[in-house]
Computed example of a mutant assay.
Amino acid sequence: MKLALLSDIHANRQALDACLAHAEAAGAERHAFLGDLVGYGADPSYVVQRVMAFAAQGAIVIQGNHDLYATQPVGDGKSLGHASVAWTQQQLSEDERAFLAALPLTAIDGSALLVHASADAPASWRYVENPQLAALSLDAASQPPVGNADVRYVFGGHVHFQTLYFRGGAGKLMPFAPTPGVPIPVPRHRHWLATIGSVGQPRDGRIEAMYAIFDEAAQQLTFHRVPYDVPAAAAAIRATPLPAFFADRLELGQ
């Protein structure tokens, strides 16, 4: 059964819709949303409502740091992040905020552990951006209380890049840069960790949305890049009081 993995949507309606349509066409039968549904983008309520509808049908949804921020007191900061949180909170209904607040930090689905950031300290929002940090996350996923010995795969987001790590014969984790659209064999006799990238805020110099599909039965993982209406997403941000920088970075893939 194919599982669509989507993370870091960041209130980007256009990118989410494009990725969901792409996943449906690719035969995805289930969905997992790995956090940061909101923040930065112009359509937090729309995105949360869509994900809530998938959750009602059995989709897995994990909490990200921006989801947590949207449920907490804002404070008096003046940073770009503070501006995003304050505006986002105003757009969300009480039910939408309650949904975000109740989301778990991790979930186990078959032989996969799903997390927004790092499995060894999910509430610390550590960026898994090199083999050493990937090893900490992967090790934690096979140990209680976070995971168990049956976990062979860790899927997360947070870093806004697509990278696959695998544990080689010497025990070291090796990074691998995937080619979009090309299925990668991920046999269960190894341990794997993937950062699946960002649906709504790519930051690798390309503007296409990112997500992945995991086929556990076939033991394959396919990373995808999906074109979407970037000008419309940027224009939607500029039509709000949000900082224009959030629109600029969509157009630059940064």
Rank of each mutant, 00 (worst) to 15 (best):
G35N: 03
Y211L: 05
S93L: 13
A18Y: 05
R225D: 00
W125M: 07
F166R: 11
S93R: 09
L20G: 01
N12P: 08
L252R: 15
G200C: 12
M52V: 07
A86T: 10
T179E: 15
T71L: 01
V151C: 14
A209Y: 00
A70E: 05
R126T: 14
Y69Q: 01
Q63S: 11
R190W: 14
A235Q: 04
I60H: 02
D36R: 07
T71A: 05
A102T: 02
L114C: 09
M174I: 15
L5M: 01
P243R: 08
I62M: 12
R203V: 01
A247R: 05
G35W: 00
G169Y: 10
Q90H: 13
L34N: 09
Q91Y: 10
G168S: 14
A119K: 06
V226D: 03
P227Q: 06
T163I: 13
S124A: 15
V128F: 14
Q14I: 00
L136K: 07
D120I: 02
P73N: 13
H116M: 07
V226Y: 03
P73C: 07
G147K: 01
F99D: 09
Q91E: 11
G169D: 14
L103C: 01
L16R: 06
N12M: 04
A18K: 05
L6C: 04
A56S: 15
D204A: 12
D150I: 03
